[in-house]
Nucleic acid binder design. Sequence first.
DNA 1: CTGTTAGCGCTTTCAG
DNA 2: CTGAAAGCGCTAACAG
Lengths: 336, 336
Amino acid sequence: MSVTIKDIAKKLEISITAVSKALNDRPDISDELKEKVKKTAKKMGYTKNTIASRLVNQKSNTIGVFILSRYKIPNEENTGFSFLSGILEVSNKNNFDVIVFSTDSLEKKSYLELCRERRVEGAIFIGLEYNTKQLEELSQSKLPIVLIDYKYDSPNISTIVSDSDTGIEKSFNYLKKLNHKKIGFINGHNKAYVSYQRLESFKKISKKYNLYNENYIFKSDFSIEKGYELSNMLLNLDDMPTAFIVSGAMTTYGLVKGFLDKNINIPKDISIISYDNFKLDAYFTPEITSISQNIDIIGKKSGEALFNLINNGKKEEIVLNTELIIRKSCEVVRNG
Amino acid sequence: MSVTIKDIAKKLEISITAVSKALNDRPDISDELKEKVKKTAKKMGYTKNTIASRLVNQKSNTIGVFILSRYKIPNEENTGFSFLSGILEVSNKNNFDVIVFSTDSLEKKSYLELCRERRVEGAIFIGLEYNTKQLEELSQSKLPIVLIDYKYDSPNISTIVSDSDTGIEKSFNYLKKLNHKKIGFINGHNKAYVSYQRLESFKKISKKYNLYNENYIFKSDFSIEKGYELSNMLLNLDDMPTAFIVSGAMTTYGLVKGFLDKNINIPKDISIISYDNFKLDAYFTPEITSISQNIDIIGKKSGEALFNLINNGKKEEIVLNTELIIRKSCEVVRNG
DNA sequence: CTGTTAGCGCTTTCAG
DNA sequence: CTGAAAGCGCTAACAG
């Protein structure tokens, strides 16, 4: 099929080894020969067969990235893919290929099997379902792994999560200054670890502020439609919060639009704090106050963590701090 | 390192060949043996080394996806990644792996070299720069290729683009009914093929309607910031259009927000038609009228086209029709 | 500096 | 139905 080092060895009437060494710039080859080999290699249209080379070297130079169905929703709303470019950046710097798996890859094979078959040297998981059994299998393997937005303790697993406590505490602090006492929380769906984590934070902080009320906790699914829908339900409540913290930028957009369509003024009537701090938040009407998660750097950081694990065996537990970016979706409550 | 078929052959005291055949369910092996082999394989924690198997089979079972820097902008605004999930879906159905390359992969190697080295069986290009020389190299190779949003004629290349003519014609038709005569166009940056294509359509259609004015053509870069910025420039114009067609949803959001911040009412003062029809358009304030591109199905379609090319050698030139989705960002012009 | 030999893990004739 | 032998394309000892 394609031209091999054997072909160029034959042409030049030298050994295959010499060709291999020349192409790989080994020191024990004369510069002239290297030149000659490289030139004719190019002329003959040779390209290295990485598959063969990976086999002999017992090194795949490949990592796997799993983008799972935490958000089984349209791509626009799937933040999972946003992490990929950062991962690609650091992988390429390390001369590694990236192969991407998504939910469809998983007909009958486990995450680990997929990795092993390809002899992947490490893997990054985005949107891993909360409490999946697969995690045990993964943690028992020695495979270097990075989990994004999921906390788990195992020697071969590094994790990178956002610290939901501080973001939510800052929100309460801010909302309190605006005289809010009824603060609601709209969570994402159960399959996401972040939902569990954010809910815990919300409970903890609201109790700390003596503002806890379990009737103020609602569930959504990160989608924009669900946010819109919720506005109806919320407005029919007997005892409605005056402010909401909403998990997920898309849900916030839907919710705000829902309120607006019913002539509820945001922020005059209801205050809203979103999560994620999408760039769009600043361009929405009203501009959305949001808990920022540094979503842009997570991809890159996760890649770096993976290679740190692969190369140095160094496990990390990265916690990114969250900020409250104040814009215009909150206001002093009228009848606190 | 890991367990091989040799190991399990030794354990079972049978030949390596027998193991291989049993594992691959070849007909010339007894069912009992198959059972036994598979069982002990599992027990010993065997997983096939696809690297070795790909080498013998001379088949990589891999496609490459290039997500290029057409949008060298934050991920949120990069529609490139949205296509990936569709591609993954059909690749997995075909038992192919997907390896993703981005701009950083390209230090010194050409797209084609990257593909060849990995013996990739086909490739999909997203955001290929307009008029790049690499395209010639690609077209001279026999590699099956699909180009998204780029038209090019070559036997090994299928393309999938949106038909910008009809979308823009529908826009003109609609705007004309609203009595607009000064219709502006805000284009994306030059590197994108779609910019070239949409500009051509705009010129063609505006001439057809006798509404062409070259001073009504502006350039942006698909980013949200640039859209915002443009609002200043536009408002200082002596002869300002009463309606704009804007290439790129993000730019639209920025532009609208820019106008709003200067107390320009959209749509009362200025009408706006966007491109892309992001889901968010319907939730923005005002709801954005947009040219729809079926962005959700492009990924899947491109994957199907690629496998059609790989398996059947069938080249396609897919043109997706565009619709005008009317919402609330256009209104009858005051002093037409 | 160059070449011979062996082998990575798997599949595939082909002979039994 | 089973196995011995050869080989995919490349690299790494080791000997010259």
